[in-house]
Amino acid sequence: MRVPSNRVSAPTAVDSTRSTLVALTNAVGLDGLAAASHLPGLRAAVDQHAAAVRESLHGDRRPLTAATLAGYAEGIRSVAEEHGWQPPTDPVYWPEADWVLVRLLAVCALSASLDTPTPQPPVP
């Protein structure tokens, strides 16, 4: 018989990835993607940034996965903060969102696309 351990397990890479993407989605993704659905200019910018993120990951020979997107987003935030960028503390006015926010929003859009199940052919 196995006795349950009282130890708290260390977070896994999957937990870290999920945590990063959930935090990003809560911080910018929910409001930003809702705004993009009503603002064609923002939607176009998000699409362009998403294409650039895909290209960057492809150029580095990294697949488009939740883990690579989480790492990419952390890298963008880290470099931006090193250059003085601060995450917004007030609601974002999306028509005038800065480059960093639109790039992070693109990561959210790509992450959401990963959650879409791939259609499977019918079983005969």
Rank of each mutant, 00 (worst) to 15 (best):
M1F: 04
V3G: 04
V3S: 06
P4F: 07
P4M: 10
P4A: 09
S9H: 07
S9M: 07
P11L: 13
P11C: 02
P11E: 12
T12Q: 03
T12R: 08
T17H: 01
T17N: 13
R18F: 10
T20P: 01
T20A: 15
T20H: 03
L21T: 12
L24C: 05
L24R: 07
T25R: 15
T25L: 10
T25A: 10
A27D: 15
A27S: 03
V28P: 07
V28N: 06
L30G: 00
G32A: 03
G32M: 08
G32P: 06
A34Q: 13
A34K: 14
A35M: 11
A35K: 02
A36Q: 04
A36P: 11
A36L: 00
H38Q: 15
H38R: 13
L39M: 10
L39N: 15
A44I: 06
A44G: 09
V46Y: 09
H49I: 00
H49K: 15
A50P: 03
A50H: 08
A51T: 15
A51K: 06
A52N: 09
A52W: 01
V53G: 01
V53P: 07
R54P: 04
E55F: 02
S56A: 14
S56P: 02
H58M: 01
G59C: 07
D60T: 10
R61M: 04
R62A: 11
R62L: 09
L64T: 04
L64Q: 04
L64K: 11
L64M: 15
T65K: 06
L69H: 05
L69K: 14
L69Y: 05
L69V: 09
A70G: 07
A70T: 07
A70W: 07
G71T: 11
Y72N: 11
A73G: 00
A73D: 04
E74W: 00
E74S: 06
G75R: 14
G75V: 02
I76W: 01
R77K: 10
R77L: 13
A80W: 04
A80P: 11
H83E: 15
H83P: 00
G84L: 12
G84T: 11
G84A: 09
W85R: 08
W85D: 05
P87A: 10
P87C: 03
P87L: 05
T89R: 15
T89H: 12
D90L: 11
P91F: 07
P91T: 09
W94P: 03
E96R: 15
E96L: 12
A97W: 10
A97I: 03
W99D: 10
W99M: 05
V100W: 05
V100E: 14
V100I: 15
L101K: 12
V102Q: 06
R103Y: 00
L104Q: 10
A106H: 11
V107C: 14
C108G: 03
C108H: 02
C108Y: 07
A109V: 00
L110C: 05
L110T: 06
S113L: 12
L114H: 13
L114S: 05
D115Q: 14
T116A: 08
T116H: 04
P117R: 07
P117M: 08
T118H: 11
P119E: 10
Q120R: 13
Q120M: 14
Q120Y: 00
P121W: 06
P121H: 05
P122T: 09
P122S: 12
P122Q: 13
V123F: 01
V123S: 14
